[in-house]
Amino acid sequence: MTIQTLEIESQTHSAGSDAKPLGAKMEVQNMSVFYGKFRALTDINMNIYANKITAIIGPSGCGKSTLLRSFNRMNDLTPSARVEGSILLDGRDITANREDVVDVRRRIGMVFQRPNPFPKNIYENVAYGPRLYGIRRKNDLDLIVEKSLKQAALWEEVKDKLHQSGLSLSGGQQQRLCIARALAVEPEVILMDEPASALDPISTLRIEELMHDIVKEYTILIVTHNMQQAARVSDFTAMMMIDEHRSGRMIEFGETKSIFTNPKDKRTEDYVTGRFG
């Protein structure tokens, strides 16, 4: 069951459809993840296309987050975790040990489920990443902070209180601050682990709109248990499910519009129609 590359037929040629060829920013090849002896993910194959939003959906415990966390090697933090197969970023295998984790994490940023601003002021939250990479001059940092906050659609709300604590913001604002923090190191890919699950519907829509805005410059991969969200924001959708060995597998990958209007796999159909079980 391999879903290698996908033929993208342009089904509808709507007005303004740009027929730019899709470039695979990342390629996952026969990847499995183990926790000790337990095989959490089995033979994952997928492409992450540049400047597109790719959503990973599936029932709880199917390994969505594990998959996402493989992309910036956050699984390294779990001592028993081990990865087989490869994940290519612009053709280079980032799972190889010789690859610098710090560099991988700079190029592939992450936004978490719950907003997790550092207990510092707004400015320092955003400047944290650039400082790590040696940017010290105040002028440079000022520019980066402003640009990142603008990209995250937060600048107007916080420009007069940059020296207030990041924790003083509302939940939705905190999450946008975390997005600004991730953008500040100019990553190429942004991983989002259920970024709106702790937010109210309006803040959720705001985050989704923000994703649409920034995807022109970045490549986004989002894990969500909210199917409607995946449908709204993503260009591509990967459907995951656990097999009989309780190991996560990717059962379908395709353009979001075809996954939600005409899925190929019966299990995907059952899941998106709410008949799963």
Binding site: Q11, T12, H13, S14, Q228, A231, R232, T256, K257, F260, T261
Partner: peptide, 15 residues
């Protein structure tokens, strides 16, 4: 049919 398809996609994805 193209527009119909587009409509279906909008209904399915945008709720």
């Amino acid at each position: 049919f193209d527009i119909e398809n587009q409509l279906m996609i909008l209904i399915a994805t945008q709720q």
